[in-house]
């Protein structure tokens, strides 16, 4: 599979990733931070008593990483990454004769990656994280991939690191979405997990909810999403429709200049994420008082429109459907 799919895909993916990073300014920022990190002595990167590799060894490691970048198979790439880690360990051990844990290894890896000054490592790590066989993610390869990701985000957030001691919200959101896509507990990823898509439900007085997945860029405003909805849902009077966000029991209209994907990201990264839906409906839509009614309506309406199994509709009260555990609700949230 890797050969027939990934081989032709890898160069395309890499150049797309690169271009998007250049466009967003992330590339030059990463380059700058990497150059700044390169000038820092090992101690400032958190390296304490372990001796760091000399320039010759750094050169060798850089070549290994460059060779790794050329491969298309995520498994083979991870294998190379492990060789790099092993080399770092060997150097550390040769000088001290003891074994090292993460307290010493992670700072050293960060230092070495900064010395190598290869900003393309960022995209490489993402490529492996997305495409590595899920069972391998919890193994040795997954561990060192995680460490490489950690090291790169430390370098990327070099300046903020001192002040904030937290990952940038963007990194957190990327991680959160990646986690949802790649976690072992979930079998199928939901399309909503992707940053460029948005599920929007059309809610009509008489026919219940219909949802569509729309391609919505991270920067798109609510106004743009509304015109897209008008087009996709073929509503007759688009000027009468607005986009609403419903969470828990409440529903609020979104202002035209807000950004739906940012709202989604914000909701995703909350400590205790609520279920939420983006709903496209008429301004004069009669919100039949409470959430229970709303859900009830939707449920009843569903009986007409979906192919859901009949027995699921009849014998369970709407009240029960609202008391489902979070995980169940989440898996079907739009």
């Amino acid at each position: 599979m890797h050969k027939c799919v990934l081989k032709p895909l890898k160069p395309v993916l890499s150049s797309c990733l690169h271009q998007s990073m250049v466009r967003s300014g992330a590339w030059s920022q990463l380059k700058d931070n990497m150059a700044a990190a390169k000038n820092r002595p090992p101690a400032e990167m958190g390296v304490t008593d372990a001796l760091s590799p000399d320039p010759l060894a750094i050169d060798k490691i850089r070549h290994k990483i460059q060779a790794m970048c050329k491969l298309y198979s995520p498994e083979k790439k991870v294998h190379r990454l492990l060789q790099v880690c092993k080399q770092i360990y060997t150097i550390m051990e040769d000088h001290s004769g003891r074994l090292f844990g993460a307290d010493d290894f992670l700072p050293m890896l960060t230092y070495v990656l900064a010395q190598c000054e290869l900003p393309q490592m960022e995209a490489e790590v993402l490529y492996m994280m997305e495409l590595l066989e899920p069972t391998l993610l919890n193994g040795e390869g997954g561990y060192y991939l995680t460490s490489a990701f950690g090291a790169m985000s430390l370098i990327k957030n070099l300046e903020e690191e001192q002040a904030a001691r937290v990952l940038s919200s963007q990194t957190r959101d990327t991680l959160h979405q990646w986690h949802r896509r790649r976690t072992m507990q979930r079998t199928a990823p939901s399309i909503d997990d992707f940053q460029n898509f948005l599920r929007v439900a059309l809610q009509e007085q008489d026919s219940g909810c219909t949802a569509k997945t729309l391609r919505v860029h991270p920067q798109a405003t609510v106004e743009e999403v509304c015109s897209l909805c008008a087009l996709k849902f073929c509503v007759r009077e688009p000027e009468q429709y607005r986009l609403f966000l419903t969470t828990g029991g409440s529903s609020q209209q979104l202002t035209p200049d807000s950004h739906t994907q940012r709202i989604k990201a914000e909701l995703h990264t909350r400590d205790a994420p609520d279920t939420f839906h983006f709903v496209y409906r008429r301004v004069d839509f009669q919100d039949t008082s409470s959430q229970a009614n709303e859900a009830n309506d939707a449920n009843n309406a569903n009986a007409n429109t979906t192919t859901a199994r009949p027995e699921t509709q009849s014998d369970l009260s709407p009240k029960l459907s609202l008391s489902l555990p979070q995980s169940n609700i989440h898996s079907v949230s739009i």
Binding site: R199, A201, C209, T210, A211, K212, T213, T246, T275, H277, E294, A295, A298, N299, N302, T305, T306, A308, R309, E311, T312, L316, S321, L322, L324, N328, I329, S331, V332, S333, I334
Partner: peptide, 11 residues
């Protein structure tokens, strides 16, 4: 059968 709440028609 747990798939309820605001249920949706998938296109």
């Amino acid at each position: 059968s747990n798939r309820r709440g605001v249920q949706i028609v998938d296109d």
